[in-house]
């Protein structure tokens, strides 16, 4: 079974839904031989790392990342990297930052 290991970062207060964890090493696996993409990491995080199931909506909305959460792939806006379809590589740093609250 193919797998990729990446670092996920939760910033901007998003760590509250992950029990205060700001950085997590994620081993993402997939049953098929298709390349492992960012979408698979999102599913992995949503299923395994969110502490309380009710916080699922804080992270995922309509099957994608909730509007207002910025995603960076190795410090580059994911909009420039193909968003969910970005093919993960070992050692990638994926940053999720909430932009939603107070200034």
């Amino acid at each position: 079974m193919p797998s990729v290991t990446v670092n996920a970062e939760f910033l901007g207060g998003l760590d509250v839904i992950f029990g205060g964890v700001r950085k997590s090493k994620c081993k993402v696996t997939k049953d098929s031989d298709d390349p492992i993409i960012l979408k698979d990491l999102m599913t992995h995080i949503a299923n395994n790392l969110i502490v309380h199931k009710k916080d699922y909506d804080v992270f995922i909305e309509d099957d994608t990342i909730r509007p207002g959460i910025l995603v960076l792939v190795n410090d580059t806006d994911w909009e420039l990297e193909g968003e969910e379809n970005y093919e993960l590589e070992d050692g990638d740093l994926i940053t999720f930052t909430s932009t939603l609250h107070g200034g």
């Binding site: 910033l11 910025l70 960076l72 806006d77 940053t95 930052t97 932009t99």
Partner: peptide
């Protein structure tokens, strides 16, 4: 979004 990116 730009404020958050700038800070980051």
């Amino acid at each position: 979004k730009e404020i958050v990116l700038y800070a980051h």
